[in-house]
Design a protein around this nucleic acid. Structure first.
Lengths: 232, 232
DNA sequence: CCAAAAGTGTTATTCCTACACCCATGC
DNA sequence: GCATGGGTGTAGGAATAACACTTTTGG
């Protein structure tokens, strides 16, 4: 690409993309981290990252990074924040644009992740990370908590079919606090976009819990009509 | 700065900083825009922007851009979003990190702004902007609306001393909807951080309205103790 | 004395919270 | 038949929303 005399007097910078990858194992909120294979900080834990290429948008770059580690495409991803302290990366001045992703822990490519020395950690017991990755994770957690209250993104962390106790357990994990199961059910049952199936999950109780599904189309229609999501 | 063999195989990019500058004229929410003086899009309206330098953080870069136009430092600024479509800037691939700022329309350097062909526009009647600056403004507005409900940033747009009707008028402008003045006053009067002064503004009524101030220190203390801001 | 904006109080409704019991099933 | 988790209903309290009148004062 040809550039311009006005632009060419300015400096260019490395632009990195770092992914905070969340998962849920029916108990705890998890983070997919990789063990860094090169200096500096070799052997320490870090977020999955990579450099922006010239022929991709930053969104596309973040999707590529996620796919490189997990093999997944089309999953929920949201830009979190751009980190730009001068010395945040000791090797070279690098601007990092952080994204967070919500994936289903049973659907990613484990061999691929293994080959990058990736490992899941419960958010509550994550190791210290390199550079400013710790603050990225903190911000992602805060964002996820806020978003999950007002937008139906929790479903991205659950299987297509889920039970209400599973969903509650997820929200308890996200917010790190117990919820009253009666009030939670009551609120959910008033949500039109929640579709009850004629099928039960019997893996966690003798009685079994009904499966539900999130009706994305109906939800979009309801949003158009002015109703809004709220859960906590 | 020396870089690294691992880094050097990657591409570098122009990184720009664009500022959405909000003001309030006692009636309407305003935007400070500049008339672009060079091609392409010469003569069209745009946000104030500039390129990131190697020796400044992105926050510092944004502050520098704002100061270049307004002469102001230390004003409220928040990173909004990083825009990174490949062709968002037709001249050269440029990542833009957008910030929004809240300034007092009576305190900036008008000569400086004039020298950049800057002009205030009511948000409701802003001209079409270049590149993706329109979506930046939309996002900034949405963010401002959300923030103003849960954090005491509205005061950044008002003089140190303000009246309750002024504050209400500001919130009406931000959210573009009328508020019940009785409920608004009631809510405010229950806010401990609102300091009533023994002085009245008589410019807008014969009776006069008491001036108030925001007690930042007390607010911080209250936040520490777990109370939270909410206004709408 | 009157116009124009400032200030204040009460009630109805809605939403949220707390809380306890019955149900279905596999063993 | 009992232990285990799943499912439902009600009542009290808090926050919100709706609404009308009195006050001050410059002209």
């Amino acid at each position: 690409m040809t550039t311009d005399i006005v632009y060419d007097q300015h400096e260019k910078h490395f632009v990195a993309l770092d992914c905070i990858i969340f998962g849920f194992d029916q108990q705890e909120l998890q983070l997919l981290l990789i063990k860094r294979g090169f200096e500096p900080e070799k052997g320490n834990w870090s977020l999955m990252g990579g450099f922006l290429k010239s022929d991709e948008s930053v969104d596309e770059g973040a999707e590529r990074i996620l796919e490189t580690l997990t093999g997944l495409t089309g999953v929920y991803m949201e830009q979190l924040y751009a980190y730009g302290e001068v010395r945040r990366d000791p090797v070279a001045r690098t601007i990092s644009i952080a994204y967070y992703a919500l994936i289903r822990t049973d659907q990613y490519n484990k061999e691929l992740a293994d080959s990058h020395n990736a490992q899941w950690f419960p958010v509550s017991r994550k190791p210290a990370l390199i550079f400013d990755h710790n603050v990225m994770v903190e911000k992602a957690l805060a964002r996820l908590r806020r978003r999950a209250r007002i937008q139906p993104i929790g479903f991205e962390l659950l299987p297509e079919k889920f039970t209400i106790p599973q969903l509650r357990s997820l929200y308890e994990a996200i917010n790190n606090q117990p919820l009253d199961h009666r009030n939670f059910s009551k609120r959910l049952n008033s949500m039109e976009w929640l579709v009850k199936l004629n099928e039960k999950d019997k893996t966690s109780s003798r009685k079994g819990a009904f499966y539900y599904q999130f009706d994305e189309d109906l939800y979009q229609k309801l949003v158009q009509e002015g109703s809004s999501f709220a859960l906590k």
